[in-house]
Each structure stands twice: as structure tokens, then as C-alpha cells.
Amino acid sequence: MYYKKKRRHHFVWQYYLNHWSEDGKTIYCLQENKIFKTNTENLANVRDFYKLKKLNQKQIYFLEYMITQMPTFIRPIHKNLLYLFTEIFNIQKKILESNNDAKLLNTIDIMINNLEEEIQRSAERIGLKYLKKLHAKQLDFIENKKDLIEFYYFLSQQYFRTEKLSIAYSTSESTMNSDMSNCWPVLRNIISTNLSWTLHLYKMYIYVVENCSDIDLITSDQPAINLKANYIDPPIRLEIYYPLSPKLALFVCDENKEYNKIDNETALLLNKKMQEISYRQIYSCNRKTIEDLIQ
């Protein structure tokens, strides 16, 4: 993790996007009303997106207080995360004040750049086996508590790790008024962990549904979306939609629903919702699906 600084930080998993690729490398993308074909490596990434942000004392106190309001069993996880995200800057300061060792400072600089990116890669490694099971329509993992929590953690990270959610938090009125924008990298990891436990504790319904329509499902730079949310007010209901491929989709709902198959009407509605909630880009396995969507 700490030998080479990673600059191209992806907030949508490339392995996931490859399921929209016919050749295993390239997919179609719509950005700024232009459709183009490109390698998945070029999509859904921002330079130094996961680079740690130095927190001031007010921001640290805010996060520490938030953690005290959470269930006792989960607090140590969040305290350790906050320690990781803050202590690295304390070490950097001590080095600068003492011997100013260039090699050590370079190592710290790499760690600041790579740490959260590695956390997201770890979530991807956790999610790989579940994504493979979902593609095979195998849901046996939901009967195992550990597996289910891991799956929900992976899914939660795919929801909260994106540029759209980062911008939404940092530009919200409450965040701007309270100077808490730098807290989001810590918060998104805290929220993902909390949500994984919450979903496990409540009775959720998980469906893998085939797209039997003539319309391929698209995905976007916000690949997991809540169909019950308006993305303005805090959601009170949950229906997570996470397309798995042009012909397969995952739904996680707070109520028992009849999901037999995705027909043409449903596929079009899902694609329009995905386009609506996307931030900069939508992705497809073919040009025509995007052209039909935007005409």
C-alpha cells in the first residue's frame, strides 16, 4: 500500500463495470451529452479523490461526539478509523519538527494518499465473492450472519463512496455553515459500517432479477441507488437498486415485493432513474441504449 502513491482513485469498481463490456475492457459512456467508448480505467475516477484531509480540532470533536452516540459494540471500530485518519498527520508534524527526514516524509505522504483507497479496495475484495454469487443467482450467503454483514458492508460502500455523495455532503447548507466538509471521508466509512449492521438486524428482502426485456440495463457513476429516495430529504424507506449487468439486477428492499422479471417498461423506468441520479456519467454495453434513453 505504501510503496507507490496512487493518484487515479476510482469510486466505481472497475471489475463491476467490466460486466457492461463486450471485450472485457471497454464500455460506452455518456458524459456532457457526448457518447464515447473507452476503457473502464478511464471512468469514474478523480485524481487523489481518497486523499486524507487534515481535520481541525472542532471537526475531530464533532466526529468523536457522533461516535459516542452509536451502539457500544461498534464504537471501537469507528474510534480506530478516526485514529488512523488523524494520527498520520500527527506523525507527519513530529517528523517535520524533529529531523525533517525526507524519506520518512515521503512515506507519510504516500500513506495519506493511499490509505482510504486501500480501504475501498479491501471492500472490493470482500465483495468479490458475493458479486460472483449474485451473478450465479446464489443467495445462500444470506443465511450466514457474518457473510450477510460483509455483503451489506460492500453494498453500502458502493453507495457512499462516490463523487456524487461526496459533493452532496460537502455542498449541503448544514455542512458549509458548520465547516464540516473534511469529515466526509471518515463519515462515509462510519455510515457504511453502521448501515451494514442495521440492514442485518432488520428483515430485508434480497432479490436477483433477470432483465428479460429488449432494453439493456445501464449503470452510472452512482451505481447503487435508493429508489425510495428523492436525494433531497432524508429517506424513510429503502429499496436499493444495484444493476449487476445489462441483463441482471439486485434489489434490497424493506418490504416483500414481487420481482419476477424485468420487462421493457420496468427496464426503461430503471434506466431513467439511474440516469436521473447519476452525477456525470452513465454507462452501457452499447451505444443504442444510451441514444434511445436521451432522445
Score class of each variant (00 low, 15 high):
E87H: 15
Q92P: 06
L30P: 10
E173C: 01
N90P: 04
I282H: 00
K53G: 07
N271W: 02
A102D: 14
Y61E: 15
T107Q: 06
A102L: 14
K5W: 01
I190G: 03
S166T: 14
P185H: 04
R287E: 14
Y16P: 02
C212L: 04
L227N: 01
N211I: 02
E97C: 05
I74P: 10
G24F: 08
Q281T: 06
N99L: 08
W197V: 12
N39G: 09
I88S: 08
S196C: 01
K288A: 07
L17N: 02
K273N: 04
T193K: 06
N177K: 06
H10D: 07
K203Q: 12
R8S: 13
T38F: 03
H9L: 03
T193A: 12
L30I: 14
D216S: 11
I60V: 11
L43Q: 12
T38P: 07
E22R: 09
L115Q: 10
H9S: 09
K137V: 06
K54P: 11
S278F: 06
Y130N: 11
T193H: 05
L195N: 06
N80L: 13
K5N: 10
M204V: 08
H9E: 05
A123H: 12
I190C: 08
Q275R: 02
F151Y: 10
K137R: 14
T68H: 11
L155M: 13
Y207C: 04
G24H: 05
K37I: 02
L81R: 12
F49I: 09
I190Y: 06
E258Y: 05
R237M: 14
I74N: 15
L17S: 01
A267N: 01
Y279W: 12
E41R: 15
